[in-house]
Design a protein around this nucleic acid. Sequence first.
DNA 1: CTGTTAGCGCATTCAA
DNA 2: TTGAATGCGCTAACAG
Lengths: 373, 373
Amino acid sequence: MTARQQGGQSAGRAVGAPSVNASTAPAAASSAPTSAEPAPAPSVGATIYSVADRAGVSIATVSRVLQGAGTVSSTTTQKVLDAVDQLNYVPLGAARSLAVRHHEAHGLVLPELTGPYYSELLMGFESRAAELGQSVTLMLTGGKADLARAVRQLATRVDAIAVLGSAAMPPAVARALHGQKPVVIIAGAGQEGIESVRAENAHSAELLTEHVLAHGRARLVFVGDPDGAPDIHERHAGFVAAHRARGLVPAGPVRVPFREAAGDAVAERILSGEIDADALVCANDELALAIMSHLQDAGRDVPRDIAVVGWDDVMTSRYVRPGLTTVRQPVHELGVVAAERLHQRVSGAPPRLEAQILPTQVVIRGSCGCAPR
Amino acid sequence: MTARQQGGQSAGRAVGAPSVNASTAPAAASSAPTSAEPAPAPSVGATIYSVADRAGVSIATVSRVLQGAGTVSSTTTQKVLDAVDQLNYVPLGAARSLAVRHHEAHGLVLPELTGPYYSELLMGFESRAAELGQSVTLMLTGGKADLARAVRQLATRVDAIAVLGSAAMPPAVARALHGQKPVVIIAGAGQEGIESVRAENAHSAELLTEHVLAHGRARLVFVGDPDGAPDIHERHAGFVAAHRARGLVPAGPVRVPFREAAGDAVAERILSGEIDADALVCANDELALAIMSHLQDAGRDVPRDIAVVGWDDVMTSRYVRPGLTTVRQPVHELGVVAAERLHQRVSGAPPRLEAQILPTQVVIRGSCGCAPR
DNA sequence: CTGTTAGCGCATTCAA
DNA sequence: TTGAATGCGCTAACAG
């Protein structure tokens, strides 16, 4: 008796006769759908053997009709389909993966999911992955004690991994993964040969800054930590470039996290006079909105007293008064491209030498000093 | 030569000598780390055999140290760990899954990811799943042509599935899944014996509505389609109950989607006089915010001319003027509970008979007519 | 404390 | 057009 025959028996058991065990009924596997099988019982744990048994064919045939591979006569096909239906058979992905040597799944590592940025990205990623027949396994780094472990664990179950640049993933981990599985970094600095895709930052930031300067503002301040994320670093670089282009020397950045809470603190420092500015170029909208709101509550007029611009074009930016001038990123597209690249890499394509950079767009509203609408 | 021995050979190959093939060097597997192996090459495709080979132990031992099971001498452990490191070994999850007969993964089905609701939910789900050692495979129904297929595909790779009630998943699919894998429905009507977890709606909606009525408003209108989602249905029921409690008969609901765009349309119908109301009880914040913004643009004063309240307490609701009165849901917790239940079910716990209902909280701001702050 | 061995459920040659 | 046999990489008894 081979292992496979035993498998067949196990199938026979599932069909209807729980009492026959391997040693007493070696023949039960081959044919013998006993008369006790009328129940279309959703027999949990049905395997390809159960189905083959039920349909009176070999597992190879079952596999063929299920994969749509090879050619199977229509009568046989129907028998198999019926059996599948009756047993409510759900193939075991792990077994398939092991056999085909592919997980058919992409991993995505994000820091968290607050705000529209990550959601948008995830939606783009998921939609493209699904089109390519890949499922997506998500991992959030936020709050994970042992990140490295979590990532290794993820690597265990996917064919390739996309990591958001600011996901605070130890470069060491990224490198370890790299070489094992294809890795692409989203919106981050491409580390030694690791492929990356991102949105354009520096140039747009320069345009945005120049726009604010053109409004006659002279004391611009960049709010957000340039070293907090590669994206922000580039935006700050654009901010500096715009000043230089006019022969100006920009003030140093106000290094704060990109969160709402930090915005309140910054607003206080402005109100107290500690920070002197007639325009704020913020690292993202969340920060900009918090600051603007806080300043308005304190009686300041935006943009008359102080202009405020952000980055991301989140939904709220359209609703506040004045509307927030900001920069729209092709976030969804970023996710799509990442999924696409992972798939190509898994399919054997070599990593891209240079980063793929998607264009962004400055969105002018009222907070920069332009007339509303 | 058994299959396993061949496995060993393949391992030997991976170690360093790509030229030796199975037929010419059957001995290469056992010992012979040739002198050509100094490179700590991230040999892709290292298996447990490669590692065992390299460490000079059996695969069982490798498995033991990696799983932390059984007892292994510290010297042996170190040898294995070194080998793992040198070969940059990443276990194949599928193989483990097949052996342990568990995917160690939970599936989550959501309609999409716009707005903070789904993100919050997903974060809660992911964090709890991770704590329980389960990875999460996400599926978005939005834009999927063949939903049933996608869900079956998902079922193939996870141990259990959580589905958002409004995820427009054909009840038939949910039922098919059920019986095969544990299923829990989030924020939806529990179908025939399928477990569900959700937030309280009807009572909070009644309280909220009563609050608005207490402001002296008499012509309240419910905005949103009660049949669009189970949640909304309950909220509308609360809306009606509050009226009945005062002996009033509420106007019929304005049946529109819960999206921004619909809000603009509704606002127009109010401005044109088609809808007559002095207070709007909206199905969610997104809708409420869009309407409020549009009305304000048209010169209406909120709440003096018309009060507006929402549901969800999204970030924007804090920022608009006046602040939006709304209801906060324990969305994160909803995700946590769902992940928790899935795990328990996979571990053998029976489905819960009645739905788990988490409490919500009315958040009063200015849009209902209360004084700001 | 360590090695041997037998499957886990599926895809896939290779024959028939 | 079909079936028999083999192995994917790993875990888990079972021996030693």
